[in-house]
């Protein structure tokens, strides 16, 4: 038994989900989802609204019962953890509060259930800056305050894993900034942070790894750099005085060319190949610039077709 424990502790994959499946009525919300989260990383859990992110997180926490598959935290099922708050802190929805209960009582009740001393309540309240309102009933709290309270609750057991579902959703810019700073602070302490979002831009700055889902299925397990590099659709901007000559030479070498202002956008050839073609055709080049797809573009490409609700027509064009 001890050997098993040691192996699990040394396992660098702290969250593992295998074949997670959840159906609501006839609709499959999560479909055979398998992924891992590495220890000590910030992993963004990305997908459009309705992709199954929240359902997946609820299943990881043992709240929703999967129709198939399962998850482990630090190698163990959540139901096998005696004091789960000491291993995993979770904020699924800041609104899970009884409105007439005072903030510190809310935290105290949670702490007590895992044998965490009451003094820890004051510590986490100070950490999220809620000490002064600790005695207020949470029904009076703004969303930002509830979010902080939720994060305080997640930190009660000083867990190594933090799971947060759309923590910045609905917050004002100041609140979003606070969440972002706080997540960086938590990650800096070496905690594993698994955080969902439907906005890639939100994740791009802080996430090491990305788990991308759409329509309940895994689309990619990747990191921010590979996502943009491998997303396909990366084009090269070519500019020169003889556009017609350039176009002919590049097309002749197998590249696809589109006009973009006074330049050409080439797909299907990298900058080196285009440079070689231009050199061989003795054509002058003023610009030869690989253009990586923006993160949002890459994300939209990946999740296209997986969105539950799509806008039609011009509104879909990125601004």
């Amino acid at each position: 038994m001890r050997a098993t424990d040691r192996r699990i502790r040394n396992d660098s994959r702290v969250i593992r989900s295998e074949g997670l499946t959840k159906r609501f009525g006839g609709r499959t919300a999560v479909d055979d989802l398998t992924f891992e989260v590495r220890s000590g990383t910030v992993t963004g859990f990305l997908g459009p609204n309705g992709a199954g992110k929240s359902t997946t997180m609820r299943m990881i926490m043992g709240l929703d019962v999967p129709d198939a598959g399962g998850s482990t935290l630090n190698g163990r099922r959540i139901h096998d953890l005696d004091t789960p708050m000491r291993e995993v802190g979770v904020l699924l929805d800041a609104g899970y509060l009884h409105p007439t209960r005072r903030a510190h009582h809310h935290l105290w009740a949670l702490a007590a259930s895992n044998g965490i001393p009451r003094s820890r309540v004051d510590e986490v309240l100070a950490l999220v800056g809620l000490t002064e309102v600790a005695d207020q009933r949470v029904g009076k709290f703004s969303l930002g305050m509830k979010q902080r309270l939720g994060i305080a609750a997640a930190l009660l057991g000083d867990p190594s894993i933090i799971i947060l579902d759309e923590p910045a959703n609905g917050l004002d810019p100041e609140g979003v900034h606070w969440i972002r700073t706080f997540l960086s602070y938590l990650a800096g302490q070496g905690r594993t942070v698994f955080v969902s979002s439907h906005l890639l831009s939100e994740m791009a700055l802080m996430a090491d790894d990305l788990v991308i889902i759409g329509g309940g299925r895994l689309i990619a397990e990747t990191d921010v750099r590979s996502l943009t590099a491998n997303a396909g659709g990366g084009s090269v901007i070519v500019r020169g005085p003889d556009r017609i000559g350039l176009r002919r030479a590049i097309t002749g070498a197998g590249g696809e060319v589109a006009d973009e202002g006074d330049a050409l956008a080439v797909v299907g050839m990298d900058a080196a190949a285009i440079g070689r073609v231009a050199h061989e055709a003795q054509l002058e080049l003023h610009e030869l610039a690989p253009r990586s797809t923006s993160l949002e573009d890459a994300f939209l490409q990946l999740t296209a077709g997986a969105q539950e609700y799509r806008t039609a027509g011009p509104a879909e064009e990125p601004s």
Partner: peptide
């Protein structure tokens, strides 16, 4: 009440059994 205010979720997260 725990179900009405969904506090059952943090409750069961903290005590999955």
């Amino acid at each position: 009440q725990e179900y009405r205010f969904a506090t059952i979720r943090p409750t069961f997260s903290a005590t999955p059994r």
